[in-house]
Design a protein around this nucleic acid. Structure first.
Lengths: 219, 219
DNA sequence: TTATGATTAAAACGAACGTATGAATCATAC
DNA sequence: GTATGATTCATACGTTCGTTTTAATCATAA
């Protein structure tokens, strides 16, 4: 009962991750998934119950670790700061850097999962929206509070918005690592695709911090 | 042949814009669209040929004006600069500000279209990706060149990436004008929803320019 | 007023969808 | 080796999908 089950479940989850990333939830059929995974059509309903539950499991498998890691890192930063405010750059790196570094970790989904996450955050079906809101709530609240403390001179509403802008920039940065040229037909000459992800992290971080710390707009 | 046809076409386009925005392309059925529009099921295929062509027309109806307007504004800026480089803030406002100001113009789709555009940029089906790439190519190239000229000390690859980050932040800012709390459960207290859009423009612009002009990352 | 072309309407098409069923096959424990 | 429960398999169910077809209805010009 060991290897068969585990293999089948994993194969389904891997194929789903790939296909949901490429074609979205509604655009991916169970027959594509089971065909790609090389398992029987009925296997998804046997192991996961339904397509919706499968989608949730695809996310849970990755997000559980990601959000726990984010909590751990922020815990460490706050312990180190010993009551003082944590630097904004450290908070941003803990949240977005931890996410981006998943791209290099194939065991945690790598680029495929990141791109799936990026696109799903803007195309949420009702059920997945509710699911993500629940999965993310705790972490979001922690980081929000940390930023409030780190930037006491910036109004809270402004911080919330800027966090949201950062999410968007990051989402596009991920989703568009090769989709960039698909929309814009741009090319970045002197880099091959392995370099690109390594350079993306400092590039994006610089951009995010520039935006986060920008001078307040005048009303 | 006048009012009937035009009405039916417009009613279909309006309903499609709403429904595609709310549920995505694959998640919206022709029966929902024609039901919502109050027209016969066959009307879509009669007037537009297919669901794909309908989707393209939904975008063309709005993007044609948007991209022409972006061209006009940039033309004016460059004429005014008389050979000198245009200020980055002016370029960013011409591109993103022009987009955001559509939100207040109900005749040009308003928030509904903006949110549709925002979500579609990250969830493109193959056919719509190709369509958008074609629709946007000319404008993108113009603005890219303008930014190269405006920021000669920043490497071109860096500018391309930052443009992409700005697109992402803007897309989220739009798509999330009320979806923010759906993912994060955040609330921005002291503002009602009419205020929110007006304040969003300067907020986002500040963020974008902060990111665009951030000090270069150290490799 | 009648002929003509454009539009709408009702109904049906085959294909694909997510899911359920019951038999076959597997691994394990006795 | 046989019984038992877990898993896989082939197949079918009922729905819904985008599209097509054919007839009815409308607006307009002769």
């Amino acid at each position: 009962m060991e290897t068969r089950t585990v293999d089948t479940r994993e194969r389904i989850l891997d194929a789903s991750e790939r296909l949901f990333m490429a074609h979205g939830y509604e655009g991916t059929s169970m027959r594509q998934i089971t065909g790609d995974a090389g398992v029987n059509l009925a296997a998804v309903n046997y192991h996961f119950g339904s397509k919706e539950s499968l989608m949730q499991e695809v996310f849970r498998r990755r997000l559980d670790w990601l959000n726990e890691e984010r909590m751990r890192v922020l815990d460490a930063l706050e312990a180190e700061a010993a009551g003082q405010a944590v630097k904004p750059s450290a908070i941003v790196d803990a949240f977005f850097g931890t996410l981006l570094r998943m791209a290099g970790d194939e065991n945690r989904g790598g680029m495929t999962f990141l791109r799936l996450l990026g696109r799903t955050l803007t195309e949420p079906s009702e059920f997945i929206r509710a699911f993500l809101a629940h999965e993310y709530k705790e972490v979001m609240d922690r980081y929000k509070e940390a930023l409030f403390k780190a930037l006491p001179e910036v109004p809270k509403a402004e911080i919330v918005w800027r966090f949201h802008f950062m999410l968007g920039a990051t989402s596009y940065a991920i989703a568009g690592t090769d989709a960039l040229r698909l929309v814009t037909d741009w090319q970045i000459e002197d880099e091959d695709s392995t370099d690109r992800m390594d350079r993306l992290v400092p590039r994006l971080m610089t951009f995010l911090l520039g935006g986060l710390r920008a001078q307040l707009p005048q009303f």
